[in-house]
Design a protein around this nucleic acid. Structure first.
Lengths: 140, 140
DNA sequence: CCTTAATGCTATTGACCATAGCAATTCATA
DNA sequence: TATGAATTGCTATGGTCAATAGCATTAAGG
């Protein structure tokens, strides 16, 4: 690689993440979901107490931007909004959502397995710790 | 982290990349550049033969989307379009662009150094090889 | 009780990426 | 060398995604 960017860790990180996202996007397309949809489904699986704000905080999505996302999943019949009190709404999976969850799990499990398999064996055990170090200590 | 996503390599990769990008974006803000601007400047530094299409291919940006990017950098006085023949235009740094290049290099060098420093020492040598493996073999 | 914070939402904006199409030029090869 | 194919730089457009400001309602805490 003769270009001056390939050797920069930041650049390589960005490219690796992009390649990974493109791959996962393709794998989720057959079941009509985007990455963000699948993430949300995995996050509310088996729970009836996660609010829109909760999910937004976990996925780093502003409350305002949760609305169209939830609207779409609700229109697809995958989730439902269930009042927890007069203000909070729990996001729960519908039966169709539960069925979809199984497919999401199958796809993501295979995906993560393939992802790890691409990393040469000696580097493999160091991958997650390194990522978590970057993620947890983003700014100083 | 009690959430079911943190342990997924793909998710961790995405989050680490996002944190990295946010950090770099902040560091470049004082000199009025975005990440994509800085990447382009580093890519054309010291050359007078890189065309818009070349750069687009290297950065994975469609030709059509190069136009507003180049227009902005040209309006800022950092780059110029120099005809190579009746069709091709070389993207070159102006004197102001060269001055900016020095600042870009200072910022990105420090940034990459800090990035690596965040990774615990034992994992460090494995980081770039792992990323390149993911980047170079995105789909199979 | 009453101020403060949180929730879910509307509306808007901008960055970014993808696609289709076009005129002009270069190229490849027959 | 002539001609069809590919390339270049561009316009125009639409879609996704994130960020901001603002609002009415409700919950929590001093």
């Amino acid at each position: 690689m003769p270009d001056p960017l390939s050797n920069l860790p930041g650049y390589a990180l960005r490219r690796a993440a992009n390649a990974m996202m493109a791959d996962l996007t393709e794998r989720l397309a057959p079941i009509g979901l985007r990455i963000i949809d699948a993430s949300l489904i995995l996050l509310v699986a088996g729970r009836r107490d996660r609010t829109s704000s909760d999910i937004g905080r976990m996925l780093d999505i502003q409350r305002a931007n949760m609305v169209p996302l939830l609207n779409r999943l609700e229109a697809s019949g995958l989730i439902a909004r269930v009042p927890l009190d007069k203000k909070k709404m729990a996001i729960v999976l519908t039966p169709a959502g539960d069925a979809m969850l199984a497919q999401v799990r199958a796809i993501t499990n295979q995906f993560e397995e393939d992802l790890i398999a691409r990393i040469p064996e000696p580097h493999r055990p160091h991958f997650m710790p390194a990522l978590h170090a970057l993620w947890s200590a983003p700014a100083e």
